[in-house]
Structure formats: structure tokens, C-alpha cells
Amino acid sequence: MSIPLPPLPSVPGDADWKPAGEEVVKVLSEEHRRITSLCGRLTDSDVDAVERARTAEVVIATVTRHLSAEEQYVYPAVAGTLEDGRSIADREIAEDREILLTLQSFSSTKPGDADFDRLATALCGQLQRHTEAATGELLPGLREIASEAELIRLGNRVQVAEEAAPTRPHPGTPATPPWNKVVDPAVAVVDKVLDVVTRRPTYPSDL
């Protein structure tokens, strides 16, 4: 069975041809490990307040980009490929909305606030569940069915989508194609202007 990829550029007819890039399973697995590491830093009370505040901004931006790309490309592939894929994708989209709502509340706090530690712990718990669902169900299912070339092409699309994704949570925006592919990049323009103006850190490399 072939994975129902979103519209992508045409490829050579050679069956042995393999595109450049990393397959989606590796891309997302590395991102999940990175997010888990950031959560460890975020919830570590031994990290000083300034660095925890900067880490919080990076977590918010990283997770927002990650969820946007998954909703644009990964969940549609899951819905069209895996057994009971539609209900799995719907479940993950609903969980994503809850994560975005937590991110939205968390973004208005800072270390020392009464809600900062509570929301940081709640957020990291939600992200742990998200990672477990991906590593235990979604990604193994895609790898079992899709070809290596398909997985690489999907990984490429996820990475491109992340670069054009919002860096702040917008839980009210569309969560499914085609509208999220239109709205997310448009919203991202405003987010990125604000990031530049405020010199906000948005990548782990900024820490």
C-alpha cells in the first residue's frame, strides 16, 4: 500500500530513485527528543529565572511549529493510511488543541508567577503523551506502510512547513488542510515580526 502523500513536486519514474533529505520518522523523533530535553530544562528549579524564561519562549515556539507541521502533513497521511487512521488523526488534533491552549496560558506567565510551574508541568505532561502516541502508534504505522522515498518526501514537507509555521499558539486557527496550509503561514508572518522586534528566542540554538 502506498501512503497518500499531499500534493508534491513530480519525481523521476525510476523505481530506485530516492530523494535527498531525512525521512519523516527520523525528523519527528529527533524533534520529540529535543522537546523532551527542553521540558527537562523548563521544569528544573535549579535553572535560574532568566534562563527558564528564555527556555519557555523556545518551548512555546518549537512546539507551535511542530504541531502546525504535523497537522498540515502527518495527520492527513495517518488518516488516509492507517487502520482507523481518521479517528487517530482526529484524536491527535483534539489533543493538539489542548496543548495550544496550555501554551497560550503559559505564554502569559514568567518564572516566579504562581502559575508558571503548574503550567510548565502540565504542558510537559501533555507533550509526553503526544510523544508516546507518535512513537508508539503513528510513526511505526507510517514506516510499516510507506516506502522510504515517500517517508523522505513527507519529512521534507514537514521541515518546510515548520519554517513557515507560527511561533506563537493560535488554538482558534484551522487544524486541517487546506485552510491550515493557508492560515498558518499568514499568521506566522506577524509572529516572526514580533519575534524580531522583541528579540525573542525561538530555537534551541538561541539558548
Rank of each mutant, 00 (worst) to 15 (best):
V193K: 12
E71C: 08
I60H: 15
I60V: 10
P6I: 00
F106G: 00
V158G: 05
D90V: 15
P9T: 02
V25N: 05
V78M: 04
R54L: 12
V24Y: 12
R97W: 13
P76R: 08
H32P: 06
D195K: 07
E30Y: 03
L139Q: 06
Q104N: 01
S45A: 09
S45D: 03
F116P: 05
L194A: 10
P4R: 04
D184W: 07
E95S: 13
R129H: 12
K26Q: 06
T81N: 05
D16Y: 09
R97Y: 13
V190L: 10
R129W: 13
L5V: 00
T198S: 13
L101P: 02
N180L: 10
D191W: 00
V59M: 05
H32N: 14
D14M: 02
L194G: 08
L42F: 11
T62L: 12
E98K: 11
A120M: 03
D48G: 13
R54A: 13
T64S: 04
A94I: 09
C124L: 03
S68F: 01
G141F: 14
V63K: 12
L123F: 02
K181I: 14
D195T: 10
V78R: 00
R65P: 05
P9K: 00
Q128N: 10
V78S: 02
T36G: 11
A89D: 09
V189Y: 14
T109H: 02
D184E: 10
H130S: 14
D14T: 00
G125K: 11
D90T: 14
T167F: 02
T167C: 04
L101H: 06
A146Q: 07
G80H: 03
P6F: 01
E70G: 00
S29Y: 04
I99R: 10
D195Q: 08
A49T: 13
E57K: 04
I3Y: 15
E137C: 15
P171V: 10
A122P: 04
A20S: 00
E95K: 11
L82Q: 08
P9Y: 05
C124W: 07
V25T: 05
P140M: 15
T176K: 10
Q128V: 09
G112R: 10
V63S: 14
S45V: 05
D84Q: 11
A89P: 06
A56S: 05
T64P: 06
L138N: 08
V11R: 00
R33H: 14
A175P: 07
E137H: 14
S2D: 01
A133C: 09
L28P: 02
W17L: 03
P201A: 02
A149P: 08
R199D: 07
G141I: 13
D96G: 07
L154H: 02
V187E: 02
G136A: 01
Y73S: 09
K192C: 08
R91V: 09
D44Y: 15
L38A: 13
T202F: 01
R157A: 10
S45Y: 04
C39T: 10
F116I: 05
A15V: 09
D195W: 11
A61R: 01
S147G: 09
A146V: 01
Q159M: 01
E132K: 04
V50L: 15
C124Q: 03
V78F: 08
A53K: 11
G85P: 00
T36D: 14
E98C: 11
E31R: 03
E51M: 15
N180Q: 08
A122T: 05
A133R: 07
